[in-house]
Amino acid sequence: MVEIATYLVFAMLSVALILALVRLIKGPMLPNRVVALELIASLVVGFIAAYSIHTGVDDFIDVAIVMALLAFMAAVGFARYLEKGGPRDD
C-alpha cells in the first residue's frame, strides 16, 4: 500500500514541480519568483521524504533538514535584498 502511495506522490510532486517552474518563469516580478523558489524547496523536501520511504534509506532525512534550512535562508536573504532596494523588475 505504501509502495503505491509513494508512486502516486512522485507523480503528484512532479506535476507540482512543473507548475512551480511555470510560475518561476512567468514571474512577473522578483517577489513572485521568490515565492516559486520557496514552493520548489518545499516540494523537494516532500520528494526527499517520499524517496526515503521508497528506498528504505532513512539517512535522506538529513538532506531534507539541510534543504529546509537553505530555503529559509534564501527567503530571508531575498526579502532583505528587496527591502534594501535591489532591482525588482529583473
Partner: peptide, 24 residues
C-alpha cells in the same frame, strides 16, 4: 500503520499539488 503512512503521504502530496496549482 501502513494505511496511516500511505494516507499521510497522499495528503501531503495532494496539499503540495494544490499549493502548486494555486501558485499558477
Amino acid at each position: 500503520l501502513e494505511g496511516l503512512t500511505a494516507l499521510m503521504l497522499l495528503l501531503g502530496g495532494g496539499l503540495m499539488l494544490i499549493a502548486a496549482i494555486g501558485a499558477v
